[in-house]
Nucleic acid binder design. Structure first.
Length: 764
RNA sequence: GCCCGGGUGGUGGAAUUGGCAGACACGAUGGACUCAAAAUCCAUUGACCGCAAGGUCAUGAGAGUUCGACUCUCUCCCCGGGCACCA
């Protein structure tokens, strides 16, 4: 018997699968249900780390299992190829970002192949391909048509290091998620997607999808619905009134002053001359501050009095109007009624500026009274911001819009798509907030689609999250030149059956993808309005030191080393075995030998001479357990069940049929090893075309069961009895036990509790 | 501050959802094989008491419900994640 040599058999079978096109999946197979098994596609950073494997290998186990269960399983893969790192690397090395990106894709493909996953490479997607981003641009046009893509003057997050605007979702603790620079707020004209118009639909949709509850909660919090009212505070001797948003109209009797955000449009109108100097002074100060401290420093309240007053519509009292930057311009109406008796922040402000604090007798009727009088109306507010998609960078899909002096903004007509990203010489971003494309006159100069006069192209590119917000649709029909996806193929494959990926995308990609799906649904392009019927997260793999893997820390685990040493099957199975899939955890370089030893033992076991012996019971139990565990993505216990099974059968000589059953149970985990052993047993076709073994529930039932005997809740003995015995019979057997006799001798039995086929508890 | 997760041997984790806590592994210790080492195989491995049979304690801490709690309830402590001046 030759030794188990993973590197030899793995490359051999990978070649075999490729030659047989085993994983090129047809859109329809008679009598088979389609199953869309999706993983989050990688960014082509250049190397695949253990975290990618942890996403892809167990997801592949799941897909292979589904296939053996009789589904037509599609497991596509591709590359999220646009984005900043390519550009930064290109600037550094004076390369075309395209060259850098495609070089990385090439080496990552080799690494992805080494996983031995059932990826359907015939459906590969690269988002930086004109053939792909043509349709990203098309989707932009659909949003534009629906009034959901607009150029707006918005207060936006500007990263001075990356020299681009970022979406709210890409800012972490006031810093750029990519480079950690503190972002500044800039008022700029940007293309936005009106995701806030979909806030309610995005909330409602969560009810009907099979997602982890934690992820749903995270999205709900991110959308941040709050129900309240707009209340009008009139300014004496003026047509102006100040609208405030509050969730607690019932506290209005305690409202002793109003506060406007410094950016509020009424500030200039209401301020009294004698306060003008002070107010301007404060506005100057906060304007500078907003760029840094306002987001970071929260503790100390600041503000200034406008000199103006307004009527509290409930009390008819005149209350002072203040300005403070603790009121945010983009939430609610940018103005609040301050109720210091009920709100910590209002109290801090009142204390600082010696404003009255008045206990408010709560009044539940006040809202309806005020609304009858025209002072109040219901209002729902969302924390969610619109999605700013303009990026002042080069390596992305150009926004397909044209600015004409006469006609204003005009969409590029569909027949002119794609707007190709031109080759340029200088990719450097500018501090002025202009895209590198702005330097290319050749790109900019164009004709107005409406009046055919001279016009200029938009030079910003799209946020890469737009690219990834619809890629899962394209996998169904990746080559289509006429449509983004044909209706027929959409029907075959979508929505996605199961989506497996990290939770870090919960409030970004997963939200955007749902939004785009809903928009396309509402424009009648999709027959469903939630893209991912079922979603599961894998945990995060940390470096051996317990920290997040990063190059700067030097704790990145390179899977290639382990492929060489143990083979891909061992890594796959070890990743499954490590612990609960959603937990992740530190990579322990030593622990992997456990699975390697196991696979070596499987090798020896399957190489033994078969006999006629069969062990029905343990096999049927294992078939049940392994199948149920994979179905529930409990890969760790599925693997331990396989180990237990081998422990029991290893020293026996079993019938060929049972050895084959064992290999089939192992096949999703160790596709190469099992394929090799399967063929060694004389089979000609791939084991991965085999059916998943079935179990007979009758054979699992134990005829003899263990009954645990407790005295006062402590286990004292255990007896083996025929199953399904009546309590009277059990009582007889229990009381006959020598051990139990000792415990109960001379004492009275208070209660005798019998749990059917399981346990007896005698209470003395 | 608010909202989620989680806390079980030296380590990763298991526990049929209220019924023998520690499955399956890693590591460690001892032994076999070997000139030797690696690999492999065998044995032991939660803590404490005991020569042993056996017993006591033990799932972050404390209380409660229950015949019985890792599992349910309450209070508190610690760790991880999300949001954060959102009215």
């Amino acid at each position: 018997m030759p030794k188990y040599n993973p590197s030899k058999i793995e490359s051999k079978w990978q070649r075999f699968w490729k030659a047989k096109k085993l994983y090129f999946i047809k859109d329809k197979i008679k009598d088979k249900q389609n199953f869309y098994n999706l993983v989050m596609f990688p960014y082509p950073s250049g190397d695949l780390h253990m975290g990618h494997w942890y996403n892809y290998a167990p997801a592949d186990v799941y897909g292979r299992f589904k296939r053996m269960q009789g589904f037509n399983v599609m497991s596509p893969i591709g590359f999220d190829a646009f984005g900043l790192p390519a550009e930064n690397a290109a600037i550094k090395n004076k390369l075309d970002p395209k060259v850098w990106t495609y070089g990385n894709i090439k080496s990552m493909k080799r690494q992805l192949d080494s996983i031995g996953a059932a990826f359907d490479w015939s459906r590969e997607i690269i988002t930086a391909e004109p053939n792909y981003y043509k349709w990203t641009q098309w989707i932009f046009l659909k949003l534009y048509e629906a009034g959901l893509a607009k150029k707006e003057k918005v207060l936006a997050n500007w990263c001075s290091h990356c020299k681009t605007i970022l979406a709210n979702e890409q800012v972490q603790d006031g810093r750029c998620e990519r480079c950690d620079t503190v972002v500044e707020q800039k008022l700029l004209e940007q293309w936005v997607f009106k995701i806030t118009d979909y806030a309610q639909k995005l909330l409602d949709g969560l009810e009907k999808i099979d997602w982890p509850e934690t992820t749903k909660i995270l999205q709900r919090n991110w959308i941040g619905r709050s129900d309240g009212a707009i209340i009008k505070f009139q300014i004496p001797n003026s047509k102006d009134s100040i609208d405030v948003f509050t969730t607690r109209p019932d506290t209005i009797f305690g409202a002793t002053f109003l506060v406007l955000a410094p950016e509020h449009e009424l500030v200039k109108r209401v301020v009294k001359d004698e306060q003008l100097g002070q107010v301007n002074n404060y506005l100057e100060k906060t304007k500078k501050k907003t760029e840094l401290e306002r987001l970071v420093e929260v503790k100390e309240k600041t503000g200034v009095f406008t000199g103006a007053y307004a009527f509290n519509p409930a009390t008819k009292e005149k209350i002072p109007v203040w300005i403070s930057d603790f009121v945010l311009p983009h939430y609610g109406t940018g103005a609040i009624m301050a109720v210091p008796a009920h709100d910590q922040r209002d109290l801090e402000f009142a204390e600082k500026f010696n404003l009255p604090v008045k206990e408010a007798g709560l009044d539940n009727e006040i809202f309806s009274r005020l609304s009858k009088e025209g002072f109040a109306e219901r209002k729902i507010n969302y924390r969610l911001h619109d999605w700013i998609i303009s990026r002042q960078r080069y390596w992305g899909a150009p926004i397909p819009m044209i600015l004409c002096q006469k006609c204003g903004w005009q969409p590029v007509s569909e027949k002119d798509l794609p707007v190709l990203l031109p080759k340029i010489n200088d990719y450097k971003p500018s501090s002025s907030g202009q895209s590198p494309l702005a330097k290319s006159e050749k790109f900019i100069k164009t004709k107005c689609p409406k009046c055919f006069g001279e016009a200029r192209r938009e030079t910003d590119t799209m946020d890469t999250f737009v690219d990834s917000a619809w890629y899962f649709l394209r996998y169904a029909d990746p080559q289509n030149k006429k449509e983004f996806v044909s209706k027929e193929k959409l029907k075959s494959w979508l929505p996605v059956s199961i989506y497996i990926g990290g939770q870090e995308h919960a409030a970004k990609h997963l939200l955007y993808a749902r939004f785009i799906t809903k928009v396309l649904h509402d424009s009648d392009y999709l027959h469903f309005d939630e893209p991912f019927s079922s979603l599961r997260h894998q945990g995060l793999i940390l470096g051996p030191d317990g920290n997040k893997m990063s190059k700067s820390r030097g704790n990145v685990v390179n899977p290639d080393d382990y492929v060489k040493k143990y083979g891909s099957d061992t890594i796959r199975m070890h990743l499954c075995f490590m612990g609960p899939y959603e937990n992740g955890g530190p990579w322990d370089p030593k622990a992997i030998v456990g699975v390697y030893r196991f696979l070596n033992r499987v090798w020896s076991f399957a190489n033994k001479k078969p006999s006629n012996e069969k062990l029905e019971k343990i096999f049927h139990k294992a078939i049940k357990k392994v199948g149920e565990d994979i179905k529930n993505l409990r890969f760790n216990t599925a693997v331990s069940e396989l180990m237990k099974l081998l422990n029991e059968i290893e020293d026996k000589e079993l019938a060929k049929e049972q050895i084959e059953t064992f290999l089939k149970l192992m096949a999703p985990f160790a596709p190469h090893l099992t394929e090799e052993l399967w063929h060694q047993l004389g089979n000609k076709k791939s084991i991965h075309l085999e059916k998943w073994p079935e179990y007979d529930p009758k054979l699992i039932k134990e005829e003899i069961v263990d009954i645990i005997i407790q005295i006062n809740g402590k286990a004292r003995d255990i007896i083996k009895v025929q199953r399904d015995l009546k309590e009277s019979k059990i009582r007889e057997l229990v009381l006959a036990s020598e051990k139990i006799k000792i415990y109960i001798s001379g004492k009275e039995i208070n209660r005798f509790i019998y749990i059917f086929n399981k346990l007896v508890n005698i209470v003395l």
